[in-house]
Design a protein around this nucleic acid. Structure first.
Lengths: 149, 149
DNA sequence: CGTTTTACATAGGCAGACTATATAGATGGA
DNA sequence: TCCATCTATATAGTCTGCCTATGTAAAACG
């Protein structure tokens, strides 16, 4: 069954996987998807201003301000003044935030491991091969998506 | 780069893709992820009881009742009595609900097409090959996930 | 035939998104 | 220099969608 012949199967599978992952593989930290992605961005790219974080996550600036207030209350991020521009607030990951992210991945990957055990060796190999093949292209696709918006 | 060597890269990529898809590829119908997945389930498997729908989507029964009330108000689903058990309410997709789902997939697939145009022919072929390879296994994985919960 | 269980509904609360608007600092031209 | 305007962030108010706790009616069971 080719993707071209049945694109809806792929799209629907993606939605199903998304629901199952998000709902049934909850993070142990209670972080929302946006919260986790924001922390991840801070971890990868270092301190950023609020407007940039909002744009990257595709939410409005007030939403990001509110989210960051919660994350700050939880001790996961810290606000730092930008010396060259008094309007700007730089947000950076705290050590606790970094640790929270690490634990999150560990937990979720552990769960993924468990689920993968329901497959045969051959099926796992197939999945791994496909993932390796698609990873660079998917990465490019994500970059292109992120650049568009 | 193997998945085993860098599983976090795959997991994080998945989360990134999810955020981008959910945020930047909004459906034209204002359906939430759970709403769309619920309608999809009704489309694929026919009328179901509320408890079953809640379990399938990983939400509580009151949440599903509330969601179905909204969907019923919008004319996308209908409640039908179960003759053999007076407690049970069967929910089924209406013609309008079916049409809404079709339009949804069309729109999202159209957007996907646009995004895929940013890739080269070779990259698209790679992606398609990987998708075709992984699809049956992924389908099994989803079934196994759905059965677990 | 009363008790327990099951299926669904209702009530109330919270998180996380939105729009509209306020405020403080930066910038640029008269 | 100073005022108008622009920019970065904060605040206020609202809505959706999830939760827990609880109510209600039908079924099942001893």
């Amino acid at each position: 069954m080719g993707v071209d012949q049945n694109p809806a199967a792929v799209a629907e599978l993606f939605e199903t996987v998304t629901v199952l992952m998000m709902r049934h593989v909850p993070a142990p930290d209670g972080l929302s998807l946006t919260a986790a992605a924001t922390l991840g961005s801070l971890q990868r790219r270092g301190p950023q201003r609020i407007t940039a974080l909002a744009a990257a996550q595709g939410v409005t600036q007030p939403s990001m301000t509110q989210l960051l207030r919660r994350l700050e209350d939880a001790g996961l991020v810290a606000r730092v003044a930008e010396p060259t521009d008094g309007r700007v607030v730089l947000v950076q990951l705290t050590a606790a935030g970094d640790e929270t992210l690490r634990t999150r991945w560990e937990t979720r990957l552990g769960h993924l491991e468990t689920v993968l055990q329901t497959l045969t060796d051959e099926e796992r190999a197939t999945l791994q091969h496909a993932a390796e093949e698609a990873l660079p292209v998917a990465q490019k696709l994500v970059n292109s998506l992120a650049a568009r918006y």
